[in-house]
Design a protein around this nucleic acid. Structure first.
Lengths: 243, 243
DNA sequence: ATTGCCATACTACCATACTAGTCTGTTCAG
DNA sequence: CTGAACAGACTAGTATGGTAGTATGGCAAT
C-alpha cells in the first residue's frame, strides 16, 4: 500500500507546505484509484510512511473530507469513500451548469486569439493521443482544455469549483479506462465547442458543451455492474428529493 | 472585538466539533461584517477568548481561507480579506450558472406539490418583511427560498456550492442594508420563478432566475464609492491589529 | 537628520503529548 | 456452550511546546 504512495510523495517534494503536498498526493491517489474506495487510511501509518507528524496528515484528511473524497469517522478511522451514483450525477449537473455558462459567455463576449490558439493546440495534441491510444495523457490534456477555457474568460473561481466537483467524476473516468473511452469523439466535441466560440455563436457553444458533458458518463451503469465493490451499494443516504 | 464574538460562540455551543463551531461562528461574523475586511485575526487571541486551544482555531482558519474569507499569510498573520470586486462578480457568475440550471430543471421535470407550497409560503412571509422593512429576516427567508428550491429538485451538492460562493455576495448585501435593498422587487422575482416552474415553463423559469441573480448586485458600484475601505482597491488603512 | 543594522516580538507551522471514545478479543458467569 | 462484560489496543480530537521566518522599532554610524 505505501510504496506507490511514497514514490508520489517524494516526487511532489518541492512545492508548498507539508499539508498541501499531502493533500495533492492523496487526492491524486484516490482519483487515480491507487487508493481503492472503502480503503482505510490511518493517520499514524501515513505519517510514518512519509516521515512527517500526524498533524499535517490530519489536516489533509479534513480537506479531503470536505472535497467528499474521504470520510472521517471520529474515534473510528478514515476511509476512502465509495463512489456514489448520486454524488456523481450531482457533480455532473454542477459541472455542466458552470461549463455551459462559461462556453456561452466565451462565445458572447469573445476570447483572446491567444486563448483560441491554445485550445486548438490542445485539441491537436489530443488527436495524437487518439492514434496512440495514450489514455493517461489524454486525461491530462482534457483537464488542460477545460481549464484553459475557464481561465481564458477570466473565471478562475468557476474553474476552482469545476476542479472540486470534477474529482468525483474523474474516479469514474479512470475506472472506464481504457475500453469505454471514445477519445476521438470527445476530441471532436472539444473542437465543436472551440469552433462555436470562434464564430461567436453562444447557442451552439453552450449546446456543444452540454452534449460533451453528458457524453462523459455514458458508461456509468456498465461500470456499476462490473465493479460493484467500488460503489456505494446501499446508501441510507439522501433522498431529500421528490418526484 | 471579542465580546460579540464570544456571545455567538456561547450560543453555538452544542453542535459539532470545536473546529466546526469555530468555523461557523467566524464565517457568520465575517459575512455579517462583525469582523471588518482587513481585520487581523490572531490564533492565540481567539483561542484565549473562546477558551480552546490554538489547534482548532488554526483548522478553522484553514477552512475559512479555502472559502476565500480570510487570508493566511505564513509567518505574518491571518486577515479577513477585503471584498474584491472581481471575486464578487465571479461568485455571481457561478451562482447564476448553477441556480439557472436548477430552475430550468425544476421547470422541466417538475417538483413536488409540497415543494411548491413551501416556496409560496416563503414568498408570502417575504412580503410581510416588505411591509415591516425587516431586512434581517428577509435575508434569512431569501436564503431559505433558494435552499428550498435546490434541495427540492434533489441537488444537495449544487446547494453546497451555492452556499460556498454566496458568502462573497452576502457581505455585499449586508453592506447595502437598508437603503438599496428592494425587498418587494426581489420578492416579486421569486414569485415569477415559482410561477414559471409551476406552469412547467423552463425558458421562463431560467430567464426569471437569471434576471433575479443580476438584480442582486445592482448597488455594487455605489457601495464601492461609499465604503472604499471595505474593498481591496482601498487606500492601505494598515494595522487594525495590535494596540 | 537619515540610513542601515540588529534585537525583539509575533506569526504560522509542525511535532509530540494527552484525552476520550470505539472496537475486539478474552474471560467468566450462566 | 453461549452470552455478556471487561481490559487492552486501536482510533481521532485537542492541547501544548518548539522551530523558523518576517515585520518592527530602536540604536548606532554616517
Amino acid at each position: 500500500m505505501t510504496t506507490p504512495l511514497q514514490a508520489m510523495w517524494l516526487e511532489a517534494r518541492d512545492e508548498g507546505s507539508v499539508r498541501e503536498r499531502l493533500y495533492r498526493v492523496l487526492r491524486q491517489s484516490i482519483i487515480r484509484m491507487v487508493l481503492a474506495p472503502g480503503q482505510a487510511l490511518s493517520e499514524k501509518e501515513l505519517a510514518d510512511a512519509f516521515d512527517v507528524s500526524r498533524q499535517p496528515v490530519r489536516e489533509a484528511f479534513i480537506r479531503l473530507s470536505e472535497a467528499g473524497l474521504v470520510e472521517v469517522r471520529p474515534q473510528r478511522g478514515t476511509y476512502v469513500v465509495r463512489i456514489s451514483q448520486q454524488a456523481v450525477l450531482e457533480a455532473r449537473f454542477v459541472r455542466e451548469a458552470i461549463e455551459v455558462a462559461v462556453a456561452r459567455e466565451a462565445a458572447t463576449l469573445g476570447v483572446a486569439e491567444r486563448t483560441l490558439e491554445e485550445l486548438r493546440e490542445l485539441i491537436e495534441r489530443q488527436r495524437r493521443c487518439s492514434v496512440s491510444s495514450d489514455y493517461d495523457r489524454f486525461f491530462q490534456l482534457d483537464e488542460a482544455f477545460h481549464r484553459a477555457l475557464s481561465l481564458g474568460v477570466g473565471h478562475t473561481a468557476a474553474w476552482r469549483v469545476t476542479e472540486e466537483v470534477k474529482a468525483q467524476l474523474d474516479r469514474v473516468r479512470y475506472l472506464s479506462i481504457p475500453d469505454s473511452t471514445p477519445i476521438a469523439k470527445l476530441t471532436d466535441q472539444h473542437s465543436m465547442i472551440v469552433e462555436a466560440i470562434g464564430r461567436r455563436d453562444p447557442e451552439a457553444a453552450s449546446q456543444a458543451m452540454s452534449v460533451h458533458q453528458r457524453e462523459i458518463l455514458q458508461s456509468l451503469p456498465e461500470l456499476m455492474r462490473r465493479f460493484p465493490e467500488m460503489f456505494d451499494g446501499a446508501p441510507s443516504a439522501v433522498a431529500v428529493g421528490s418526484k
